[in-house]
C-alpha cells in the first residue's frame, strides 16, 4: 500500500455555462519518502487535484464526481467532516499557491504558528514562540523576533509565502503538498526553501507532492513526474525517463520548448501551437489530438484513431503514457 493512492478521481465545477470537468479520471500513487512532481499547463487541474486530497475544494461550486483518495489506506472522501481536522496540518500539510488561503488576516503570525505547534506537539506559548522564531529565520525572514508580531497584511507577498512554508514544515507531516511553493520567490530564496523541503524529507521520511511550472525544479526535486493535460494525467514515470525519453507528445513538446543551456542565442524555440480544449465539453477522443505534432506525422488511418478513441495510460518506453502512438525515440 502506498502512502497516497488516488484512483480515477473526478471533480467538476458548476458554472453558468455548465459542468466544468476540472479533474477527469486522475490516478496517482505516492510512496513514503518520495517526491512526485505534478506539472502541466495553467488550468489543467493540478491545484484542484491537490486540494481535493485535503477535501478543500469549495463546494458549491465544486462537485465530487467519482473516484477514491486513500491516505494510509483511509478513504479520505468517505471520512466524516469531523475527522478532517485530525488530518489537516498534522499528517498532511499543504503550501498553497496563494498564501492567504492558509493565513488568517486577523491574527498575528505568532498566534497562527503557535496554534499549529500547540495542536501538533502540545507546545506551550514560550516554547512555541522560540520554535517559530527559529523556523522563520530558517525560511529567510529577516529579524524574525520582530516580524513574528506582524499581521499577514504587514508582510510582502514573498514573506507571506515563507511564513506559510514555515508553518507547513513545522507540522512535520507525513505528506507535504506544495502547490507552486517557490514560484513567487527569488532563486536564492527558492534554493533555501528547496533545501528545507529536502531536509524534512530526510529527517521524517515525508512524501512530497510538488506542483510547479518550473522543469528545473522538477528535475532537482522529484523522483517521479506526472504530467497533466486538460484534467487528465497523460504521462507518469521516473524523472530520468521523463527528461530523457518522454513518451507522450505533449510532454516531449513541453520539454522541448524550454530554452536550453548553451543553445543557440535567439534561435526559434519549439512551441505547442493551439489551445487546450474546453473542459465544459471535452472531446471523447485524445484531448491533445488537435495540437499534436506526432499525430500530424501519422498516416491518415492512424490519425482517425487519435480522433475517435480515448487513449488510456499504459506502459510506453520507460514510463506510462496515454497515447495511441507513443513517441518512442522520435525527435520533435
Amino acid at each position: 500500500m502506498a502512502l497516497l493512492e488516488i484512483d480515477d478521481l473526478a471533480i467538476g465545477f458548476q458554472t453558468e455555462a455548465g459542468l466544468l470537468r476540472a479533474v477527469d479520471g486522475v490516478s496517482l500513487r505516492l510512496e513514503k519518502g518520495r517526491t512526485l512532481g505534478l506539472v502541466g499547463e495553467s488550468g489543467c487541474g493540478k491545484s484542484v487535484t491537490a486540494s481535493s486530497i485535503l477535501r478543500l475544494v469549495p463546494s458549491p461550486p465544486g462537485k465530487y464526481l467519482g473516484g477514491q483518495i486513500r491516505f494510509n489506506g483511509v478513504d479520505i472522501l468517505a471520512l466524516p467532516a469531523s475527522e478532517l481536522p485530525k488530518i489537516r496540518g498534522k499528517d498532511i500539510a499543504m503550501i498553497f499557491q496563494d498564501p492567504m488561503t492558509s493565513l488568517n488576516p486577523v491574527f498575528t503570525i505568532e498566534k497562527q504558528l503557535g496554534e499549529v505547534l500547540a495542536l501538533r506537539f502540545g507546545l506551550d506559548k514560550h516554547a512555541a514562540r522560540a520554535r517559530s522564531v527559529e523556523m522563520l529565520g530558517t525560511v529567510g525572514i529577516p529579524e524574525p523576533e520582530q516580524r513574528i508580531g506582524a499581521y499577514p497584511h504587514e508582510l510582502s507577498g514573498g514573506m507571506k509565502q515563507r511564513v506559510m512554508i514555515a508553518m507547513a514544515l513545522m507540522c512535520e507531516p507525513q505528506l507535504l503538498i506544495a502547490d507552486e511553493p517557490t514560484t513567487a520567490l527569488d532563486v536564492t530564496v527558492q534554493a533555501q526553501v528547496l533545501n528545507l523541503i529536502r531536509a524534512l524529507q530526510q529527517r521524517m521520511g515525508a512524501a512530497v507532492l510538488f506542483i510547479t511550472h518550473d522543469m528545473g525544479v522538477v528535475a532537482e526535486m522529484c523522483d517521479e513526474v506526472a504530467v497533466m493535460y486538460a484534467g487528465r494525467i497523460v504521462e507518469q514515470g521516473n524523472v530520468f525517463a521523463i527528461f530523457k525519453d518522454a513518451q507522450h507528445p505533449y510532454t516531449k513538446g513541453l520539454l522541448r520548448s524550454l530554452p536550453r543551456k548553451g543553445g543557440a542565442k535567439k534561435a526559434e524555440l519549439p512551441t505547442i501551437e493551439g489551445v487546450v480544449p474546453s473542459l465544459l465539453n471535452p472531446p471523447a477522443h485524445c484531448r491533445f489530438a488537435d495540437r499534436c505534432w506526432k499525430r500530424k506525422r501519422l498516416p491518415e488511418t492512424d490519425q482517425k484513431r487519435c480522433f475517435s478513441e480515448d487513449p488510456k495510460l499504459r506502459p510506453a518506453g520507460e514510463s506510462f503514457a496515454a497515447c495511441h502512438f507513443p513517441v518512442g525515440g522520435e525527435q520533435l
Binding site: P142, T188, A191, E220, L255, R260, K261
Partner: peptide
C-alpha cells in the same frame, strides 16, 4: 556566481553547483 548556481537546471542528471546564499 551564486545567482547562476542557484538556478535549478532542467536535467535530473545534473546537480546544482552552489550552496544557497546566506542571509537576506
Amino acid at each position: 556566481r551564486v545567482l547562476i548556481g542557484a538556478i535549478p537546471v532542467a536535467d535530473p542528471t545534473r546537480k546544482r553547483s552552489s550552496e544557497p546564499l546566506p542571509g537576506e
